[in-house]
Amino acid sequence: MRHATTLRIGPVGFRVGSDWRAPIAALNDLYRDYPQPDDGIPDFNVHLFAARPWRRVLRPSVHIGGDFVIPDAAPLPLVQGLLAAEMGMNLQMALGQRRYLLLHASAVERDGRALLMTGMSGAGKSTLAALLMAAGWRLMGDEFALLDPVTGLIHGFPRLISLKNEAIGVIERALPRARFGPRLEGTPKGTIRHLVPDARAISVMAEPAAPRLILFPSYGFAAAERAVLPSETFVRLTQASTNYVALAERGFGALTGLVRRVPARALDYPDTATVLEQVERMWSAG
């Protein structure tokens, strides 16, 4: 492909190729402090391409492909090329990852132990992860947590944090000195702005952590907490995993092991100040 870059996020190496310079330049800028794939050999390839040669210049529209593809993925306009690259990498993980059980969850770490946060889109996974990072936790990832079926440890996947709509302003105020990507207006998920994880998140991203607490946050409710039984946690996490079925027995073993060892709580929160307090309290009690 005409333009290409390579990088590693957590334990996973990527090569991203593009028919245009801009998406690669954006990746190289925002991921400049990230390491290279181990041995220079990526785990996955992402292709950002024009479906027809003239669409490279005429109303350029970015199709997302790679080692693993879904047939009907909608293309994005070139101004959203960075988002296309991010979606391409997520897609490879969602469809192709077979080493780790992929949990659709954000994760932060303190004292070598991991806190997982999962839930519906809009529950505030990314926002919470960014706020906890601002409060001194090590960010492990805002989208995927990787459960190792062999060790039971969580590996981080600290890609750029994808902030959407109202969360953008909240985090810009919480982290005024952080690095952000461009504001991407009118994406399929509204306005998106990417936040670069802090230096510590990047420098120790290869270090796994033992899971200690699983939270199911819900934004927009009066503060409330309740214990979630392992059986319910199990079912909710199977739904929050894109490769649970593909991993078959290994996935089942990994997930049942996780829900047996690690307590889970549902967490309703009305605002960001309250939720930080709630998390700290639950973590100390945990």
Binding site: G13, P37, D38, D39, G40, I41, P42, D43, R99
Partner: peptide
């Protein structure tokens, strides 16, 4: 072979 390839 390189360990990254062996892993894949």
């Amino acid at each position: 072979m390189p360990s990254a390839a062996a892993r894949v």
